[in-house]
Write a protein that binds this DNA or RNA. Structure first.
Lengths: 320, 320
DNA sequence: CCGCAGCGATAAAATCTGCTCATGGCAATT
DNA sequence: AATTGCCATGAGCAGATTTTATCGCTGCGG
């Protein structure tokens, strides 16, 4: 089955709309014989005459009348195709798939997404969350998202963009003996005999907590292992034990206390892709980097952090 | 603006559906480089990458995801276009525009259309009626319909197909002194002193009546000029005066009398087109000729003629 | 009636497009 | 390390599309 060309369909529609081969050829900036040829070719393709050539006009045959609306529709879809491509290239449309770890989607991402939505209301973001940076990296490697945001990947060959440093805090209840230290900081070793609000085994923060405590010379005993990252600071403030969280995921109206670990605990955040990213992904990464630079992921000023709920369900479309 | 080709869109869709360039190329019976080239060309046309090439798979970019549904839709329309063309060529679809004179649409055409509909239920007929054969011919010459049915056109260069002869009858009321002639015929001159049920000036039957009466040696006085062709036999049966009608337009349950004019008055009916007609028009004309040959437009057997109403409005879609 | 304008079809030449074959580079698997 | 899987790129060729030139037909106006 030979298929018509968009060119032929465009010729047909223009001949019908102008009422003549000659005027259609002018309008389309081709010569009349080219148009005549292509009309013949189209008629051969569909298996019958579409136009009756009258001395001073043309007229659709029954087959022509049946075919014309579909010719128009196909051309309209091609036009739409072009329009959505342009809109995506111009950051006015399209959908971006972003993958990240739980803590990032609680911390730095919400204000970033808010800013993005304000500037590019036509672009949708689809977010996928992973509990552990390793799983994020594996998903990204296997083609799961357009852009990953999280701790720097290991042995990654594609483009990596450094966003900044995420700073961690110790959370204690307000009435803890260490809560009102003038320095506002605490050495991990001073919490060695505490039972901790730890994290579920598959959460990357569990590894991090174990690692920094090991470096301080002790192994943290778990009072509870939080399944949801956002629950950890709340449980710690409630007195179940200290916990370690990225400072910027802590809610503003928080009845616990944040102390700086001494020495400080930081983690570099990056945005990375497999290959040279497409324009929309580049634009989003630029926006992300600008926002994080303007609002470093350190200790919160209370006024800058909005109220939070639990992490959104996986794959949920956050915007629009 | 460069436009994509259907081929390129087909390539895109197949790559996405098969998940690989190589398998898509196999499925489409082209080589992989051809496909690779065309994908590159398509991406250049739309202004950005549509596919991310992973080591063992491909993945749509945001722009690719935006574009894909429109690619599918355009291909679907091309397929529909082909389908409707085929259906029209196979007499299963399409719409035919038929032009005729009032008397034909009362007489020979209804059973023809009924038969056509039974055999080709998917084909629609659009009927246009004209009061006079000259107007029918003029309309046809100016491109008004696909096919004309009526008296043979004068000085016509296009294809003409003879259908047969339409026979005329004199209509009188049942109690007319001439009503029960054993011969069942009457010479026009015997009605010379009557006032007639004539036709409106623009009706071709007016010319015909005047012409045949002039040949018989008199000029018919009009008691009334019927605007609707179908009204004439009814008015004559009601006693307003004799009239002359194509025999086959007379209703079956008719309380008037039909007499054969002596000598007989006949008119050749034809189907004609401007140029060599398209397959659907040919098929309809064939059907028409067959039907008229099987049921000549002469004096009716009462059982074969259905009840009738007034002529349908112009341009009304008769079927479906 | 004739000349001219309007209009689409056809042929030949020029140009463009789409495909194949050959090959290279990279990643994954054995 | 060798092999397989997979896409990209370049060169060449055949077919498709367009342009230029011309013809034939119809309609219009003088």
């Amino acid at each position: 089955m030979a298929i018509p060309t968009f060119r032929q369909l465009e010729y047909l529609v223009t001949v019908v709309d102008t009422g003549s081969f000659t005027r259609a050829a002018e309008q389309l900036h081709v010569t009349q014989p080219a148009l005549s040829h292509q009309m013949r070719a189209l008629e051969s393709t569909v298996g019958g005459p579409l136009l009756e050539r009258l001395p001073r006009s043309v007229r659709l045959t029954p087959m022509g009348r049946a075919v014309l609306p579909h010719a128009r529709a196909a051309l309209a879809e091609a036009e739409r195709l072009h329009t959505v491509a342009q809109r995506t290239a111009g950051l006015e449309g399209g959908e971006l798939e972003v993958a990240t770890v739980y803590s990032v989607s609680l911390g730095i991402l919400p204000p970033v997404l808010r800013g993005w939505r304000r500037r590019h209301p036509g672009v949708r973001i689809r977010l996928r969350e992973y509990p552990h940076a390793d799983r994020l990296q594996a998903a990204m490697a296997s083609g799961r998202a357009d852009l990953a945001i999280g701790p720097a990947p290991t042995a990654w060959e594609g483009p990596i963009r450094e966003l900044g440093v995420e700073e961690f805090a110790i959370v204690l209840p307000a009435d803890d003996p260490l809560a009102d230290r003038p320095s506002g900081s605490v050495a991990l070793i001073d919490l060695a005999d505490r039972t901790w609000v730890h994290y579920a085994a598959d959460n990357g923060l569990a590894d991090l907590l174990d690692h920094v405590c090991a470096q301080a010379g002790f192994r943290p005993q778990a009072a509870i292992r939080a399944e949801q990252t956002a629950a950890a600071p709340l449980l710690a403030a409630a007195g179940l034990g200290p916990t370690l969280v990225p400072a910027n995921i802590v809610p503003p109206h928080f009845d616990g206390v944040l102390l700086r670990p001494d020495p400080p605990i930081r983690r570099t955040l990056t945005a990375y892709t497999r290959t040279r990213p497409d324009p929309l992904t580049v634009a989003f990464a630029d926006h992300l980097a600008d926002q994080v630079r303007a609002n470093p992921a350190g200790f919160p000023a209370a006024a800058t952090l909005p109220a939070r709920t639990d992490a959104p369900a996986r794959g949920q479309n956050l915007l629009r």
